[in-house]
């Protein structure tokens, strides 16, 4: 059977790269006493994959992993037992058994579902924006000016090539405090069915693990994520800094992922990944 897990990654676990996180979870399942499903052949390995790999240095409230299991308990027990063997910095908040018929007869991998993600980008304490910008109000003003542009063209570098890309259509919204962000979510997601705990799924209500900083300079953003269109929050911040005449220091910003969304085939709207499992 296949299961999808939602977990938080925070604290110094942000220094663990996503491939190592996969290895970590493989071992964690073994420690919790569950047998995983293996690929066939002489060099069997566990079947496990991420929805959207998170870069080193980033934290998250919403990491999704699909894993094949041969033995399993109720979703509630699974969440409890796995959390018992996890290090501080990892915390499972949801477990869902995937069934063959969810989707169109075939199991869709978490990765294939991803369309968008919410991020909170905060200025770390001890870092400054430069140019005498001190308050979050000044930051907001600058960022709004940047976001109000018709087009935001950046030079997107890949391993092979560079090209000019307009990233503006890849940003669905921005907000500057929790209230605004919650309000946006409230009006877009209010009608979705509330998660239920049953024999297939289990949800834990966990407070966000995003680090808070005294300077309060931060921005919430919803960005295209996934194979069709992908925009990293770091690129937005770099573009913002260069546009506003600020020096971009990649280490000054803490990026925290808040949620991952899939796009509903019919309504075309974005739905959190754990609302469709």
């Amino acid at each position: 059977m296949k299961a999808r897990i939602k977990f938080q990654k925070y604290g110094y676990m942000k220094f663990i790269g996503h491939l190592d996180v996969l290895r970590y979870f493989q071992k964690a399942f073994r420690r919790a006493g569950y047998d995983s499903e293996y690929t066939q052949g002489f060099n069997p390995h566990q079947i496990i994959s991420f929805a959207a790999p998170l870069g080193v240095g980033l934290t998250s409230d919403a990491e999704y992993v699909d894993i094949g299991l041969r033995t399993c308990d109720t979703p509630e027990t699974m969440v409890k037992k796995i959390n018992e063997v996890l290090s501080e910095g990892f915390y499972v908040t949801g477990f869902h058994l995937l069934t063959e018929d969810s989707g169109n007869g075939k199991m869709a991998s978490a990765m294939s579902l991803v369309a968008s993600a919410d991020y909170l980008v905060s200025l770390k304490d001890g870092c400054s924006l430069g140019n005498g910008i001190l308050s979050c109000e000044e930051f907001r003003e600058l960022f709004e000016k940047f976001y109000s542009k018709q087009d935001i063209i950046i030079n997107k570098k890949t391993k092979k090539s560079e090209k000019m890309v307009n990233i503006k259509p890849m940003i669905s919204f921005v907000a500057f405090d929790e209230k605004e962000y919650d309000a946006y979510l409230g009006c877009h997601l209010a009608d979705l069915p509330k998660p239920v705990n049953n024999e297939k799924s289990y949800y834990l209500n966990a407070a966000s693990k995003a680090d808070a900083y005294e300077n309060n300079i931060k921005v919430y953003m919803q960005l295209d994520t996934g194979s069709a269109s992908n925009l990293k929050p770091e690129l937005v911040m770099e573009a913002f800094c260069s546009d506003s005449g600020l020096e971009y220091n990649p280490y000054a910003w803490q990026v925290h992922r808040l949620e991952i969304y899939t796009r509903d085939d019919e309504s075309k709207r974005l739905i959190p990944l754990d609302s469709v499992w």
């Binding site: 110094y12 676990m13 220094f15 663990i16 790269g17 190592d20 071992k27 420690r31 080193v56 240095g57 063997v85 290090s87 501080e88 910095g89 770390k124 990649p250 280490y251 803490q254």
Partner: peptide
């Protein structure tokens, strides 16, 4: 941690220096 984010993120394999292993 003894090292700042900036130091840890500018070196190869920061997990070498953070401890906290199982």
């Amino acid at each position: 941690l003894a090292l700042t984010d900036e130091v840890l993120l500018s070196v190869e394999k920061p997990a070498r220096y953070i401890g906290g292993e199982v």
